[in-house]
């Protein structure tokens, strides 16, 4: 029989079992969900897209590791969140972005935006988007020059000067040449991703596959992406700037970073509301600002800034979308208000 006196028992608080999900498994799911878009980027832009993404990932992981090591904080690179940031930053930059430039973006995203505020879960704006915004502000020329995937060639080391460039659908839309746009790229081209744009944003289909995977795996709720995309769809359908409502709406949905933003950026845990109600509001806000920036701003694209603006509203949204306390039903609330 066992001698129970010799058992080394630990007495910790309940619960004594945990679900299978970990931060690492969630981040791994996000990485998996991004793979279709990455594969598409390689198909369209060549191996350079892969190199850009790989360098960005290595950069982010290195900066995270180095910061935690230098500051003598518990190491956190194992949670894979830096890998996700690295991939996302590469995804929102043009495929012709020089490698040294993406490393600067990585530095800004990981050190300034994420680690200086306390690391994972503490940053108040999405690190990858902040990295992109920083690069856009610093190197506007490079960040708004788009290689033409129809030529299917991008220089590996030469920089954008050597590339064959093209205007993105959103740029053409801004100019008002809907007839020219529809003749250059069909809706199917737009949906599948035969268009110029940022590394990971061009194929709505690939991003949808990844997004549905995330929803099925319960990594994200449907609330943010659906309310975001639906808001943009409704607004662009009701208020087309040029051309027919349907064309304007479809090209708006597939033409920029909306799908990438809605499924992978706006759903970032640290910078989105915690309740489903809050996530709906957040998505609507993102959609509204995206359309406003695209319509009235000087930029062609509004996804990045709209999400960042809404990131700043998260604390406010959380404050006003607290779940109703158990046991307090609607009629009680009314009675309370009447008193």
């Amino acid at each position: 029989m066992t001698d129970y006196k010799n058992l080394k028992l630990i007495a910790t608080s309940n619960p004594h079992i945990r679900g299978g999900e970990t931060t690492r498994s969630i981040m791994l799911d996000v990485i998996i969900a991004m793979l279709p878009a990455l594969i598409w980027a390689v198909v369209k832009f060549g191996v350079e897209a892969l190199l850009l993404t790989a360098v960005s990932v290595v950069g982010c992981v290195f900066f995270e590791w180095a910061y935690r090591a230098l500051m003598k904080k518990p190491q956190s690179v194992g949670d894979l969140s830096a890998v996700v940031t690295g991939m996302l930053l590469a995804f929102v930059c043009p495929p012709s972005t020089p490698l040294w430039m993406i490393l600067i973006g990585d530095f800004f995203a990981i050190i300034v935006v994420k680690q200086l505020f306390g690391g994972i879960g503490k940053n108040f704006v999405n690190p990858a988007l902040a990295g992109r915004a920083f690069l856009l502000g610093s190197y506007a020329g490079v960040m708004t020059t788009w290689v033409d995937p129809a030529v299917n060639k991008a220089p590996l080391f030469g920089g954008v000067a050597d590339a064959v460039t093209a205007a993105t659908p959103l740029a053409i839309m801004k100019s008002g040449d809907m007839a020219g746009l529809t003749s250059t790229y069909t809706v199917t081209d737009m949906f599948l991703g035969h268009i110029p744009g940022s590394t990971g944003e061009i194929s709505a289909l690939m991003l949808l596959i990844g997004g549905v995977y995330l929803i099925v795996r319960k990594v994200i709720n449907w609330h943010t992406p659906v309310s975001y995309i639906a808001t943009v769809a409704v607004l662009t359908f009701l208020f087309p700037k040029y051309g027919s409502s349907m064309d304007w709406m479809l090209y708006s949905l597939f033409g920029g970073g909306l799908m990438l933003g809605a499924f992978f950026m706006a759903t970032d845990y640290a910078t989105s509301p915690v309740t489903k109600k809050g996530q709906l509001i957040f998505g609507v806000g993102c959609g509204l600002f995206t359309v406003l920036i695209r319509y009235f701003g000087s930029y062609n694209e509004g996804v990045c800034y709209s999400i960042m603006v809404m990131n700043l509203c998260v604390a406010l949204i959380d404050k006003y979308t607290k779940p109703t306390r158990f046991g307090v039903v609607k009629s009680d609330k009314k009675e309370g208000a009447a008193k």
Binding site: I17, S76, D79, I120, G121, Y269, A270, T275, P323
Partner: peptide
């Protein structure tokens, strides 16, 4: 069964909010 980690860091995923039976 225990599955604890050494330095837990909240990632604000909100899963705790959606499972809390007391809202």
């Amino acid at each position: 069964e225990e599955q604890t980690v050494e330095h837990p860091q909240c990632i604000r995923c909100g899963k705790c909010v959606s499972v809390c039976p007391m809202h």
